[in-house]
């Protein structure tokens, strides 16, 4: 990561290394940051969620809908939108834990359903939201950074703390490490996974609400492709597709790495924006492959040393 920062500074000079670019980077990072915290939590417990982008869209669309169409005050609208997102997460959790549908398929399904439902209810887009709400998203609060950045930092720190020190969140590691053994240790894996999905959707929805405040409008397509970026980021950050591994800090750093990559691509005028998903997908596959060969011991000697010290 440090090398990337140095490299980018060398190539782009002031264009990269200036306060406003870093600010822009941080702001664009907030959305994916929230989602990555949730995605890391889920991957630790051995599952993942493809519907995050759609839930992000639900959060955004619903808060705009509540404010503009139902004339809720913005705090009430935000709480109501979060409630809807929690229900989306509960639906994912129900499909996976009670109906025993493979998480990949269950969340692929809800990804489509929620994207469509959000647009049907909230429309393709809404503008002209009240200033009291949009101020929240853009007005500098501290050190020139707006509320979303600070809210993200607080959330990330909170999750780091919880995953280290709370019994409930420690159980995520055991469920992901060996679900059947966890059950025979008296850990209710279904409850853990269900909570994981609800937390994931709350975070994605919250990010959507903040994004809506920053933009001052809602758009139907917001959050598309987010699942790919989030999963790639957290796997780079040390999660394993097999579960039981990873830290929240790792997930945040992985997401930051992805954000940096795209910031640099954005800076170079010659690379088309359409390359983004290509690079995204490539990084995901490479990251998972590295995890696989580390497991198989191909690079075992290099990685093994690190393991013993940790």
């Amino acid at each position: 990561m440090t090398m990337m920062l140095l490299g980018a500074t060398l190539i782009f000079g002031r264009q990269f290394a200036n306060a406003s670019n870093f600010k822009a980077l941080l702001i664009s990072f907030v959305s994916i940051g929230f989602v990555s915290v949730g995605m890391m939590s889920l991957l630790i417990s051995g599952v993942f969620d493809l519907s995050v982008g759609s839930v992000f869209g639900v959060g955004m669309t619903m808060v705009a809908y509540f404010i503009a169409d139902l004339h809720f005050s913005w705090p009430l609208a935000a709480v109501a939108a979060l409630g809807v997102c929690a229900l989306c997460g509960a639906a994912n959790g129900f499909l996976v834990t009670k109906m025993k549908i493979n998480p990949l398929i269950a969340t692929l399904g809800t990804m489509g359903i929620l994207r469509g439902a959000a647009i049907i209810i909230g429309g393709v887009g809404k503008a002209g939201l009240p200033e009291s709400f949009t101020e929240l998203g853009s007005k500098p609060l501290l050190l020139g950074l707006a509320a979303p950045v600070w809210l993200f930092l607080v959330t990330a720190c909170l999750f780091m703390f919880m995953f280290r020190h709370l019994k409930f969140f420690r159980k995520f590691y055991f469920v992901g490490g060996n679900a059947e053994a966890a059950r025979l240790c008296g850990i209710n894996g279904e409850r853990i996974l269900f909570s994981g999905f609800v937390i994931m959707s709350l975070l994605a929805g919250f990010a959507g609400i903040l994004y809506c405040a920053r933009l001052g409008a809602s758009t139907g397509q917001a959050g598309e492709g987010m699942e790919l970026r989030a999963i790639a980021g957290v796997v780079i950050g040390g999660a394993s597709i097999k579960g039981g591994k990873g830290t929240i800090l790792g997930g945040v750093l992985g997401a930051l790495f992805m954000a940096l990559v795209f910031n640099i691509i954005g800076m170079s005028q010659r690379i088309s924006a359409y390359w983004q998903p290509v690079i995204n997908g490539t990084i995901l596959i490479l990251a998972v492959y590295t995890d696989v060969i580390a497991e198989q011991g191909y690079f075992g000697k290099i990685f093994g040393k690190n393991d013993k010290q940790s």
Binding site: Y173, F174, A181, C185, I187, K245
Partner: peptide, 17 residues
């Protein structure tokens, strides 16, 4: 298969139950 968390440490395995 059903007892240990093979990828985890001794202390974590003892914490599990």
């Amino acid at each position: 298969k059903l007892g240990l968390f093979m990828e985890m440490g001794v202390a974590a395995n003892m914490e599990s139950n």
